[in-house]
Simulated assay, not measured.
Amino acid sequence: MGVSERRFGVLTGDGIGPEIVPAAVAIADAAAAAELIQIDWQELPFGLSAIASHGDPVPAQTLSALDGLGFWIVGPHDSAAYPPGHGDRTPGATLRTRYELFANLRPARAFTGVPALRPDIDVLIVRENTEGFYADRNMAAGSGEFMPTPDVALAVGLVTRAASERIARVACAAAIERAGSGRRPQLTIVHKANVLRMTTGLFRDACRDVAAEFPEIEVSEQHVDAMAALLVRRPADFDVLVTENLFGDVLSDLAGELAGSLGIAGSVNSSESRVMAQATHGAAPDIAGRGIANPVAMIASVAMGFRRHGQMTDDAALVAAGARIDAAVADTLAHTATRDLGGDATTAEFAAAVVRRVAEH
């Protein structure tokens, strides 16, 4: 059997991006090669360096290239450091909107070797990524936040049945996929319908309707405040959580910290045909260039992206490459840690250790 080629994108980003993204790419290449895949990485202008070279953090050249790609890696962006006129809309918002990346999948699980507040946590938060209360996601033009007077600020929350049903289907599929031998798939609908009756009530009802089409799934629901408490108290009772944008953002950060650190929390943003691998953490400019950044979240995001894009395209080899990365990362964390996790490995040293273990899986 010969080697087959895939063409994917790389947007390195700001801050620690030039350290963690190349680390993730090297590991992705090793895992792909083990599955007889050769990746043609398209490096595209993005972030602060793209402002310097093209006058835009996400230039037309980058968007034109991404139009022809089904998978890409995105490093963190530091919009706060952009010159005036370039930070009003984040690069992530530009990409999410253009490609309708409506599903944000954020797993949180504890690893052997990583001190965790809840070693029994292993959940997947499925977050609706296009609506809610975030100001850049709920108006066709302008912001969803506005001030009728200098002393009064208002925000519009957007929830539609179509978007709620769409994310519920992703969550149901994930619950079925994650179910282990002898265990029923589990889905928890997270809302605040006791207070936000029309908006999150609509979200809850749409998710209920979709979940009813999957009788094999055990469905429950929680108010978001109770869900936060339960994640702290007994996370092992939960598997897949589906929720709206703001709630999903908050709960995923909480879950990541309960598992040990946001530095190990992978994430993908997905449509029905495209996947963007992007870690949940920021650009960490305070440690940029020092070689000490934790690359695990970026690596885990690429692994998840490989699996999801592979499933979308019936690419078993790519799915297998993603599984190789996951296994290699888990093995490495059991023995090696970067400074933030209590160890002394540099970014490059940790990545090299993962590469060595990729071949073993």
Rank of each mutant, 00 (worst) to 15 (best):
V3G: 08
R6C: 09
G9P: 02
T12A: 11
T12V: 15
G13Y: 04
G15N: 01
I16K: 06
G17H: 04
P18W: 10
V21Y: 12
V21I: 15
A24Y: 10
L36F: 10
E43F: 10
I51F: 13
I51L: 13
S53V: 02
G55S: 09
T62L: 09
L66I: 15
L66N: 05
L69N: 04
W72S: 03
W72V: 05
G75L: 08
G75E: 10
P76W: 08
A81Q: 10
H86E: 06
G87I: 00
A93F: 06
L95P: 00
L95D: 02
R96V: 07
R98G: 05
Y99A: 01
N104F: 13
R106G: 04
P107D: 09
A108H: 11
T112D: 14
G113N: 10
P119A: 11
D120I: 13
D120F: 08
D120M: 08
V123P: 00
E128H: 00
N129C: 06
T130D: 00
G132K: 02
F133M: 15
D136S: 13
G144Y: 11
F146V: 03
F146S: 14
T149D: 12
T149K: 10
D151H: 13
G157C: 05
R161Q: 00
R161L: 01
A163Q: 01
R166P: 00
A168F: 02
R169V: 03
C172D: 05
A174D: 10
S181K: 09
R183M: 13
P185V: 08
N194F: 12
V195I: 15
V195E: 05
L196W: 06
L196G: 01
M198P: 03
T200F: 01
G201D: 03
R208E: 08
A212T: 10
E213A: 15
E216H: 07
I217L: 13
V219R: 07
A226Q: 08
A228P: 00
L230I: 04
L230Q: 14
L231C: 00
V232M: 11
D239K: 12
V240E: 01
V242Y: 03
L246Q: 15
S252D: 05
L258P: 00
S267F: 04
S271H: 12
S273I: 00
H281V: 02
A284N: 04
A288D: 11
A288S: 05
G289S: 09
I292V: 15
A293Q: 08
M298R: 01
A300S: 14
A303H: 06
F306V: 06
R308S: 05
T313A: 11
A320Y: 09
D326N: 13
D326L: 03
D331F: 04
T332W: 08
T332E: 06
L333G: 01
H335D: 13
A337V: 02
G342Q: 14
A348F: 03
R357E: 07
V358N: 07
E360F: 06
H361D: 05
